[in-house]
């Protein structure tokens, strides 16, 4: 594939507000993330009990991906995700569970989430994506890297579409910005356009 590539859909989740293709579609004022995520999950009418076992980063990533992948043809859709804090939100919780000898309770159900790419596994399982997946860490959102690497996946025929995601979660501060790159759409897939949508 060497033709032009486009951003065919995008969404953001931050400040308890969900925007899909620039339009606000869901909001829960004054709720902690756990409550907000639960209400958004119910609003989506997705029946997927595994959601409640996920850590915060996976919940956030799962919900954002769901907005763009549900009802779509996701054949050979690669996952290209990144953030700044890796899995530190859960790392801190696991570390706390082993720091005190008198209060020592390491749990495999927590430990498994001390890897940032677990959220890619969760999305892949839900949407049966037997596709390329990779997780990267940058200190801030990096539109050049996303543009370059998504194009690499498409230009080397490793994927037909790429779901790109910046999914950040640490200490109840969170932000997800997820978009789909394919051969269809009107917004050309360039670093400038990605940055503009990220800031919108």
């Amino acid at each position: 594939m060497t033709g032009k590539q486009y951003i065919s859909g995008y969404c953001s989740i931050e400040n308890n507000t969900v925007k899909l293709n620039g339009q606000e579609i869901f909001n829960v004022p004054d709720a902690a993330f756990a409550e907000f995520a639960k209400q958004l999950y119910r609003d989506m009418e997705t029946d997927y009990p595994k959601f409640f076992k996920m850590d915060n980063l996976s919940k956030l990533s799962f919900l954002a991906a769901e907005l763009l992948l549900k009802d779509g043809d996701n054949e050979n859709t690669a996952l290209l995700f990144a953030n700044a804090s890796s899995s530190l939100d859960t790392d801190v919780k696991f570390n706390d569970s082993i720091s005190d000898k008198d209060n020592y309770f390491p749990s495999p159900a927590v430990f498994v989430y001390t890897l940032p790419n677990i959220c890619l596994g969760e999305i892949s399982i839900k949407h049966k994506l037997y596709t390329e997946n990779s997780f990267f860490i940058f200190d801030t959102f990096n539109p050049e890297f996303f543009a370059n690497y998504a194009a690499v996946l498409l230009n080397t025929d490793k994927a037909a579409k790429v779901l790109c995601g910046w999914v950040e979660f640490l200490n109840d501060e969170y932000r997800a910005f997820v978009y789909l790159v394919s051969v269809n759409g009107t917004i050309e897939h360039t670093p400038q356009n990605i940055q503009t949508l990220y800031l919108s």
Partner: peptide, 28 residues
């Protein structure tokens, strides 16, 4: 250039080779 960190569980080390190869292959 800004460092690229690959953190993809136990495939990270070989995935880094793959990412490097792809970025060079396409001229980045």
């Amino acid at each position: 250039s800004q460092p690229i960190v690959v953190s993809n569980a136990c495939v990270s080390g070989i995935l880094a080779v793959s990412v490097a190869k792809r970025m060079i292959q396409t001229g980045v």
